[in-house]
């Protein structure tokens, strides 16, 4: 998230809007955005609607054994087509902004 925020001008320059999605409530995300200085969009999916539709549910990993999202990134073009994705095999390893920016250059 920090690296996305740092590269936000580069994302904006290529017309890509980063959007973070998790089971966190809007209040929790607002607190995170304020304390960490994140200015891009954070969406709350506490009922796991989108997370289920994208088949990313990680069962029993959340607070009190609740379900959460596994880490994943999707680059979606203006027509709604997935153009690049990363489903990490190790949750410490995430997409680097450079990888996404490289993929974003191919979008029209």
């Amino acid at each position: 998230m920090r690296s996305i925020q740092k590269q936000l001008p580069q994302f904006t320059a290529v017309g890509i809007r980063p959007v973070a999605i998790s089971v966190d409530t809007p209040e929790q995300s607002r607190a995170l955005s304020q304390s960490a200085g994140y200015t891009f969009t954070f969406l709350s999916d506490s009922k796991l609607e989108a997370i289920t539709r994208y088949d990313l549910v990680h069962k029993g990993q959340g607070e009190n054994g609740g379900d959460i999202s596994r880490p994943a990134e999707f680059l979606v073009d203006a027509r709604g087509i997935v153009r690049w994705r990363m489903l990490t095999e190790n949750y410490w390893v995430r997409a680097r902004p450079e990888q996404v920016l490289e993929a974003a250059k191919a979008l029209q």
Partner: peptide
């Protein structure tokens, strides 16, 4: 359109070419 970092400068908003969806575990 994607607003620029400085939200007041509406004229600098860019048309969206796409969205990067970042699903993450959350901090609860």
């Amino acid at each position: 359109p994607i607003p620029s970092d400085r939200a007041e400068m509406v004229s600098t908003a860019r048309p969206s070419k796409g969205v990067l969806l970042i699903f993450y575990r959350g901090y609860w």
